[in-house]
Design a protein around this nucleic acid. Structure first.
Lengths: 232, 232
DNA sequence: ATTACTTATTGTTAAATTGACAATAATTCC
DNA sequence: GGAATTATTGTCAATTTAACAATAAGTAAT
């Protein structure tokens, strides 16, 4: 075991793919790149790149995210690793998927040299992508949904200040189910939220109150074992 | 992106590690190998091996499992992938962890050429292991616990015919909490179980009824959306 | 055979949560 | 001012949970 023969294994290569999710207009989108190079030139793809020789996997995913968004300090979550020997037409490339959750309106997409185009595409409207990227997206989205149920990651996709209805719509979308407004509010009343005096603007109906996630209190409660997030 | 230069990346190697969990005497054990080769000779480790050039990741984990147990047709679950550039003293080895759940008494451990000794060790008694294997174990065990809450994988570790108290003790161990017997029985009454007329033997108290998991009915219920396993 | 001991199994009841739905509030638009 | 729209709060029955009591079926000791 672990008798490494680099000659024998030289055809390996390792990449990371960064599935970047964002929420807008009631839909979850993925930041998609249109490939400017073969193979799969012209096809949409999940942004990814080979891992550098001395680079940690997570750092590699962070680098990809940074190149497209200029953002640092974003939480990245490891998803599934894909290693089918035939998944890459040019050799053996094993790829580890990560996902990030962003507020779409908080930044501008960066141009990337290796892409013809970069844009947000609603995940349910994505066409057949390059490589096994549809597989990767589906697997990663499943993990996202799992995480939405047990960790407060929804707030990474919602605006800094959001209404409870916006939060509810995100969960309704992700869990593909309609929820009762009153009951939703009861369910989330134990989540530590900061209530702002400020109200929603430019809506043609009663404006809703704005809330923020109270991360400080949340971390404290969790550390003291007084609380566990759950939305199932 | 994806302009592969194999020369530049030739130092990569890829392995899979197979965390094999088994339940015995009220504890979850890991099938551990004592390394007979450097590095970390003499240290306990998670069984693992390099992935063959044309081998799928999952197949590689299955091969490791088979070498130690002679078992095939065991469900393997992918866990975290570890790729810290310094995790292996002899080069860059990225490893993908899988885990399997076994009935300890249903098979015999096989000798393995690359190990001095192979044995079950209760996970809470494992010493400092080779490489980053304590890290891998902890991460994988967390994922197991997560899965125990939402999928009927506990039955892969319990005997084919088990008592409800045995099942309860497994959950109490995994979730590190005591549960009320009566309430536990109420909670699991929706899980499709086959009740056997046979009873527990050789106990010095009232013998409990034996049950089996009714996988056929479970799969049917899930397919028809009539049921979803949950144990939180 | 009787009794003590141990764990299995079922039942009871109050408390908490959930689900369905009703009522009221605060805006804009006309 | 009234209609339309969404926000917010309240009600109540049904369901689930939690704590605990009661009974059952074995073994072991007397």
């Amino acid at each position: 075991m672990y008798k490494i023969n680099f000659d024998r294994f030289f055809t390996y290569s390792f990449s990371s793919d960064c599935v970047i999710f964002g929420y807008k207009d009631g839909q979850i989108n993925m930041l998609s790149v249109n490939r400017d190079v073969e193979p799969f030139k012209g096809k949409w793809a999940i942004p990814g790149d080979l891992v550098y020789p001395d680079e940690d996997l997570l750092d590699s995913a962070k680098r990809i995210l940074f190149e497209l968004t200029n953002l640092t300090d974003i939480d990245l979550h490891q998803a599934e690793t894909f290693g089918n020997p035939n998944r890459h037409p040019q050799g053996r490339v094993i790829t580890c998927a990560y996902f990030a959750l962003l507020r779409i309106d908080d930044f501008h997409i960066q141009a990337a040299s290796w892409a013809k185009e970069v844009k947000w595409i609603p995940i349910h409207e994505l066409p057949e992508m390059a490589f096994d990227h549809n597989l990767i997206l589906n697997s990663t989205y499943s993990l996202l949904k799992q995480k939405l149920a047990i960790e407060p990651v929804c707030f990474d996709m919602l605006p800094e200040k959001f209404t409870l209805s916006e939060m509810q719509r995100l969960y309704e979308y992700a869990f593909d189910t309609e929820m009762d407004k009153a009951n939703f509010r009861k369910k989330i009343k134990s989540i530590p939220l900061i209530s702002h005096s400020e109200k929603q603007k430019n809506v043609k109906h009663r404006p809703a109150s704005l809330f923020s996630f109270d991360e400080i209190t949340y971390e404290k409660l969790v550390a003291e074992n007084h609380y566990s997030f759950k939305m199932y």
